[in-house]
Amino acid sequence: MLGFVIQRLIQASLVMAAMSVIVFVGVYAIGNPIEIIIPPEATQEIREATIRSLGLDLPLWKQYFIFVGNLTEGDFGRSFIYNLPVLELILGRLPATLELVLISVISATVGGVVLGIYAGYRPDSIIAKTIMAVSVLGFSVPSFWVGLILILTFAVNLGWLPAGGRGETVSLFGVQWSFLTFDGLSHIVLPALNLAFFKLAMMIRLARAGTRETMLTDTIKFARAAGISEGRILRRHLLKLISIPIITVFGLELGSTLAFAVVTETIFSWPGVGKLIIDSIAVLDRPVMVAYLILTALLFVLINLTVDLVFAFIDPRIRAKGA
């Protein structure tokens, strides 16, 4: 097991090293932030002083090594626009994104697995066909369109829920959370539904396919022949057999949703990290852009590493193969 963990850690380190180079070069090849930071009427002396203070006069390779050196000390630099430490800026927005993503992904996973198992267990029923029709709809419509329809229906026409913002928050362990208040919870419903719709459709189809395949295996046939109840077969055997693909998709979707909840946060004016990165791109705030992409890559690497370790714990064959 130790050799398996070391091998995965080495792979994760190489991926992060490669991503840091790609992200840094890619971001610094986009535009010139000086044209946005400094007004056109500024003198040449002011422009040169600002460029030197931001370190933009150095060669790109030297800027990269300075960035990596600061990164090892936990310093992501300072925002050009907000004049705040980038890590502080991102961490200040992270709780809003985190609670939105966790609520949407967990609810979509739980609901999708339950509905998918039912659709696979009773494939010819009207309810199962309705569930599959909803899953097809979830794959077919873009998230921005779903968000606009949700706002138009529940906020504009019915007036049941707010159209945007985070609402009232309360402090827990020094962090502001909105799901702990009724007003905050009412604000999170629509963006969470928008984020969860595609994930729900994916989990339904994944769980249904796994259920249909597993119900035909000898394991289920022997369990039925032994007189084990259908409920116990579903809980003890079916869920275990379809758990690996579900865990894989859950991990990947959690990471991708955290990283790319940009559309939903923009549509619903949700003050999270996604909204921050959109604003930073508009003003070419390079330190924020680089830090966001590096942290996103790190997030995916950590989630994949965690999923690999969970696989190895569940299935010793995977651990033996990676050793």
Rank of each mutant, 00 (worst) to 15 (best):
G120A: 02
A312K: 09
V146C: 01
V23H: 03
S143I: 15
L299Q: 07
Q11D: 06
P287M: 02
A207M: 11
G227D: 06
I37Y: 00
T43P: 00
V25S: 05
T130E: 06
L216N: 13
A282S: 12
G92Y: 07
L172P: 08
Y64G: 03
R78P: 01
S280F: 01
L258V: 00
S79V: 03
L305D: 06
S256A: 13
F198P: 05
P59N: 06
M19E: 06
I188G: 08
F67N: 00
S280L: 01
I242P: 00
L200R: 04
I244P: 03
V101S: 04
P271R: 05
G251K: 02
F260L: 14
S53V: 13
R205Q: 13
G274N: 07
I30C: 07
L295Y: 05
P142D: 06
L91H: 08
G274P: 00
L200N: 08
I246L: 10
G26M: 14
N304D: 11
L239A: 07
I103A: 09
L89W: 04
N70K: 08
F250N: 04
L100A: 03
V263F: 01
W61C: 07
I37Q: 03
N70Q: 13
Q11T: 12
K221S: 13
M16I: 15
I281A: 14
P287D: 02
F311R: 14
D285N: 03
E213A: 15
L84W: 12
F198R: 11
G167I: 02
G164N: 13
D218T: 15
Y82A: 13
D308P: 02
E168A: 15
I188S: 12
L254Q: 02
N83K: 14
L94S: 05
A119V: 03
M16E: 07
T169P: 05
A133G: 06
S256I: 13
H237E: 08
L2M: 15
V262F: 10
G272D: 01
I149V: 15
L2E: 14
G120Y: 00
R235C: 09
L94Y: 06
T296F: 02
P245Q: 10
V15K: 11
F173A: 11
L190I: 12
S280C: 09
S104R: 04
T169V: 09
T248R: 12
A282Y: 08
L100Y: 09
I277G: 03
L239N: 04
P95N: 07
F144M: 10
R317Q: 09
F144R: 12
W61A: 13
I267K: 00
A108R: 01
R93T: 10
S107C: 14
S280W: 03
G159L: 07
A18G: 08
F182V: 15
I318V: 14
W61F: 14
I117E: 01
A42N: 10
G174D: 11
L150F: 12
P162D: 13
E253W: 08
N157G: 10
G112F: 00
I228N: 01
G116M: 02
T153F: 04
S171Q: 12
W160Y: 14
R122W: 13
L2W: 15
F67I: 05
D315S: 02
V113C: 10
S140P: 08
L56D: 02
T43S: 10
I36E: 00
I204R: 05
Q63E: 04
Y121L: 11
R205L: 04
V288E: 01
T266C: 09
L185P: 02
V189T: 12
R212M: 15
L284E: 06
